[in-house]
Design a protein around this nucleic acid. Sequence first.
DNA 1: CTTGACATCCAAAACGTTTTGGTTTAGAGT
DNA 2: ACTCTAAACCAAAACGTTTTGGATGTCAAG
Lengths: 346, 346
Amino acid sequence: MAVTLKLLAERTGKSITTVSRALAGYDDVSEETKELVRRVANELRYTPNFLARSLQKRRSRTISLILPTVGPRFSDPFFSEFLTGVANMAAERGYDLLLSVQAPDEGEMELYRRKVSSGQVDGFVVVRTRRRDPRIEWLHKSQVSFVAFGRTENDADFPFVDVDGVKGMRLIGEHLIGLGHRRIAFLSSPSELLFVEHRLDGLRQAMAAHGLDPEEIRILPGDLTQKSGYEATVSLLDDTNPPSAIVACNDLMALGAMSALHERGVSVGSDIAVTGFDDIPMAEHAHPPLTTIHQPIYEIGRMVCEKLVRLIAGEELASRSKILEPRLIVRSSCGSLRKQSEQAGG
Amino acid sequence: MAVTLKLLAERTGKSITTVSRALAGYDDVSEETKELVRRVANELRYTPNFLARSLQKRRSRTISLILPTVGPRFSDPFFSEFLTGVANMAAERGYDLLLSVQAPDEGEMELYRRKVSSGQVDGFVVVRTRRRDPRIEWLHKSQVSFVAFGRTENDADFPFVDVDGVKGMRLIGEHLIGLGHRRIAFLSSPSELLFVEHRLDGLRQAMAAHGLDPEEIRILPGDLTQKSGYEATVSLLDDTNPPSAIVACNDLMALGAMSALHERGVSVGSDIAVTGFDDIPMAEHAHPPLTTIHQPIYEIGRMVCEKLVRLIAGEELASRSKILEPRLIVRSSCGSLRKQSEQAGG
DNA sequence: CTTGACATCCAAAACGTTTTGGTTTAGAGT
DNA sequence: ACTCTAAACCAAAACGTTTTGGATGTCAAG
């Protein structure tokens, strides 16, 4: 049925070894023979059996990405773009991408272990890193190739790509303080995720740098979803002394906040400032467009994957880790500068 | 290094055959031996080599999803949820998911072919079906297992899951006409995608059912992105006789339209009605919340995957295809009923 | 004592590659 | 005539499973 080396050997009158080596381009095969083999291989549309090859080479040219979902359903606007970056780079380098979904529980580590010891994958892309991350500890200890998107608290030196969240949120803070905001609320999320901590730190640094007390930041819990941004904001509005600026730790929560504000008739941009973080596609088209920090998420996906492929190939990485510079995108959700001066003038 | 059947055989003093059959639960192995083998396998943390097993069984227990991206980057809010559905069901059934990204060009079919003939995957999930879809033609002809999300024009009877777009958009049409709208614009996209055609048909049917001329629908080109919804709407607003309702063929375009309307100071809901299709998470939190058609996208992912797994296992499918009933979600982007009556009263 | 049935086990082949460790042949050098 | 080298080739082993087709031993029935 399938076209195998055996068939090619019969058709060319050569041995399986020779056919194999001809296709692989070894120079102990004559030019004529190579030509012949290639021709017949093309005619019969020969495709090497991936399983047999991987079994023998003990390399599967496959990388794994295990998505730590919380509920059964989740919706991360980042996800598709990051994944496309990873998948595109993987394809360019001749790798395949095996995707799994697994809640961060007891089963999680077992899944990692099995993927490795079954010979299925050569390495991992780790996403949504946690403060103390058992995945990274295990992968590091087991000497399995991996690259993370995000950092952890344990000081183990492992390869990762991340955006400088501290600096990013400092930029947001500076921007808001520059616009005159003093009463700031921060829409947070479970502190298990380290990047949230980074972002809050950045905001605190900006406060401190301007002689303001970082303790004055009003911190509200959330879980990164629009819904939780909405709910947190509703509770804020019932307060006697509501903040003049709402700093959300991601865009989704910022959009939820804006939704609550609209509902209450509070005008975003003039009555209150709202900022996000991530610059998801929706941010630009929100109403009003959202001031936020841009993360080049597609590029990050590519970088993570490229590092991983290098690692698997045994190359030395010039730099194990890379922290990207954040970029402040000023839109009108904090009031445009023009508006500010108008207000000052009026 | 790795724990193999050979090692287990040595440790238990049995043959490789017996160890293999013990673990597989055959009843030509004594209970004691099974117990012994299981114990040792657990102690040594034996994991079957996936590649060797698949090679021998000629089944990889892996399904493939090849994402037909347009540009290098894309952002589909559906994607993450659909994929999670597929991946979750795959995991439940003991399957893995291999993800690739490939533009719909010459390379596309070659990729499908290679995945099959390399023995890498047992079947495919096909997404974003096109009117005449070479992927489906080829898979059908080659007798490869696959399930599609969406239909095609060619009448080949293949398994798919889809939402009844005609009916969905008819519901939207009825709703708008019931609210008194007559001048309707439709934000379309390249007609290569069949579902867009279905949706337009539904709108036409609603018009015709109420004695209105379907030809009166003003159709504007687009490409399913917010940006194109925005641009189409801007061009509409420059018109002398702008429509009273904008029907977008998906939510993203509807959000782009709303963004343009806000910018021009047109009030969505009272001055003009806007509708979407899909019910992405953002729709609920838009300003105003978007009236749209709900698609249970996570469930669809699960259904598609389950059908595929069944097909691969050689089970007869009770129903090869499934067309889901659409559900109209009325929010306030067309004006709330209360508002309507207020207007009437004033 | 033979036969058959049954329970338990296992050697070898197979899946399709790549790698190892050769062999064969022709021609050059001495 | 002999050895050496280089070019071209290939048989067999290996990767780790599962399956095929027995083999062996025990016990009961005849």
